[in-house]
Simulated assay, not measured.
Amino acid sequence: METKGKSSKIIIGAVLGALFLTVIIGGLIVNKNNKAINQLSSENTKLETVVQERDSMVNEFISAFDSIESSLTFINKKRGQLVLNQDEMTVSQKDAIVRDIELMNTMLEESSIKIEKLEKDLKNSGYQLSSFKKKVASLNKQIEQQNQQIAEFQLKFEAQSQQLAMVSYEKDSLQNEVLSIQDTIQKRDELLAQMKDVIGQQTYELNKGFFAYGTTKELTDNGVIEKEGGFLGVGKSKIIPPNFNQDYFTKVDITEDRSIELNAKKVKLISEHPVESYKLIEEDGLITRLEIETPQEFWKMSQYAVIEVKM
């Protein structure tokens, strides 16, 4: 019986040992699996982070590309709208072109800075994104072309601005010269007008003539003539005194007025006038008028004609 009891204990001990060993081995396997799972989870997290970083960088590149392409499209359209006026350019038009050129240059400079940053980021990322490299190279080429075209336009604009400035200067100089000529002409016309007035006044004075006629008594009483010389009243001659009464005379234009109405029986000229310069017209027994045939001769010796008549 004792032997049987011992055998049972040995069997039980063996079973317990086997179970213990199984538990230990199972625990080791579980620990190993947990480590593998944790490592895989860590690697998966790292991979997800890398993917997220790459996706974020790609999105940033795409956004930058869109921004640069939008700027280049705007610049290309704006440059196509710039037109140089061949004849004349107002100050406002010129200022607008200058502002547009400055805006395009600023946008191109900003685009170049963005491209430079993209190239740097792409290089530092370690990713081999060949399509992005091609896109960056294409944008760089477009920016270079736009810079060249804007530079060429700016040179033409500056050259035309200088040409228009020269034309404007010459135009202003010509206008000033015209104004100076006009001022000279105006002054000349004013001087000519003054000279004309002076000449007209001188001509008027030269062409003035005065005549007075009447009986001896009328002429004497009005201070036109007086008697001098003779002896005891005999042989006195009639003369025009130095201070004769000019108000008694009638004024005429010697170039136009060539006839003096008399209607007298007898006529005698007290003032001196060439006989051949005038004639007396007689009608119906009366001397009706004195006709002046050569005015310059008639009035040469005196502007005052004194005619004595007997009615």
Rank of each mutant, 00 (worst) to 15 (best):
A14I: 10
V15Q: 06
L19T: 14
T22K: 12
G27A: 12
V30G: 01
K32G: 11
Q39F: 15
Q39S: 09
L40Y: 15
E43L: 12
T45C: 04
K46V: 11
E48H: 00
V50Q: 03
R54K: 12
E60S: 15
A64R: 10
F65D: 01
E69I: 06
K77A: 14
R79Y: 08
Q86W: 08
M89A: 12
V91I: 10
K94P: 02
D95L: 10
A96E: 13
I101G: 02
M107I: 12
S111M: 10
S112D: 06
L118K: 07
K120F: 06
G126W: 02
Q128K: 14
Q128L: 11
K135E: 14
K135P: 03
S138H: 06
N140D: 05
Q154F: 05
A165K: 07
K171W: 05
K171S: 13
K171F: 12
L174E: 03
I181Y: 13
I185F: 13
R188H: 12
V198I: 11
I199P: 13
I199V: 15
Y213R: 03
G214F: 03
T215Q: 01
L219C: 04
G223Q: 08
I225N: 00
E226M: 09
E226G: 06
K227I: 05
G230E: 08
F231L: 05
K238I: 02
R258W: 10
I260T: 00
I260M: 01
K266Y: 05
D284K: 10
E291H: 10
I292E: 06
I307M: 01
